[in-house]
Design a protein around this nucleic acid. Structure first.
Lengths: 132, 132
DNA sequence: TGGATATACAACCGTATGGTTGTACGTTAG
DNA sequence: CTAACGTACAACCATACGGTTGTATATCCA
């Protein structure tokens, strides 16, 4: 499917990444293949499901760009792709940053700085979770 | 459902977190509610789907612990929960760390340190992506 | 060459998901 | 008090998902 080389992630690509990570077996496959290159059969032997099922999981991970399949004779060596993982990390970092900015605004409000909330609503509940 | 207060995340909890994040609308809700507390109706007005659909999305996010619903009169104020986001970040950090350790082992091998790969396979493809 | 191995892929099945509409209930405003 | 509002929830539908089995194709080994 896609080539997963773009720097800006489309909604669809992010969907696939997180969806792929939303399954324990697939997360385990990612973990394993980040540490060692391993064939699909060797992977399949590790789980209590059919070979085809594991094949599908690998396929989902590959579509998300989380692993690469490297043909080697009749085998396919599966290797985790840390670049895509970093993309996901970046996404979460951005959310974290959004939250940090909100807290900064609230702090500015509490400090009396009248520039924190241009909308001019009344000061909200001052239960600032400083370091939860 | 769960209380999302545990420090160690169960597979099920991680499943829910990533699945909740695997939808563009839900990611947008997380972004918005990290920045401002907002009612479900106000959220619903922002998307081209029924109120009930948005309600379901919020419910999925709440089950994952990504947002909290704060009853205020007849309204429900939705607020993003950065703690759960941090849990997901931690997960991805661990994967990243796994990969880093593998690279370290390969580097040790290339440096002649005979302690890098106890299995003793031949040196793998030396295309070490040092800082991609 | 022939047989075993590794993978690919299609078809099928039960269940989950994302959406809809409709109904019910508590809360606020007039 | 009544009407409008905000929410909850059930029922339903189409499609996607995770699993199975079966079949086909390519590669290795003896």
């Amino acid at each position: 499917m896609g080539d997963h080389t773009s720097l800006s992630l489309s909604d669809d690509e992010v969907d696939r990444i997180f969806r792929a990570l939303a399954d324990a077996t697939r997360r385990d496959i990612v973990r394993r293949t980040l540490t060692e290159e391993i064939t699909v059969s060797a992977l399949a032997a590790a789980y209590q499901m059919s070979f085809a099922a594991v094949q599908k999981h690998v396929s989902v991970l590959e579509s998300a760009g989380l692993v690469n399949k490297n043909p080697q004779g009749r085998e396919r060596l599966v290797r985790g792709n840390p670049d895509t993982l970093r993309k996901a990390q970046l996404l979460l970092d951005q959310y974290e940053e959004l939250w940090r900015r909100r807290i900064d605004r609230l702090d500015a409000l509490l400090a009396g700085d009248p520039n924190g909330d241009p909308a001019g609503g009344p000061p909200e509940d001052p239960a600032t979770p400083g370091s939860p």
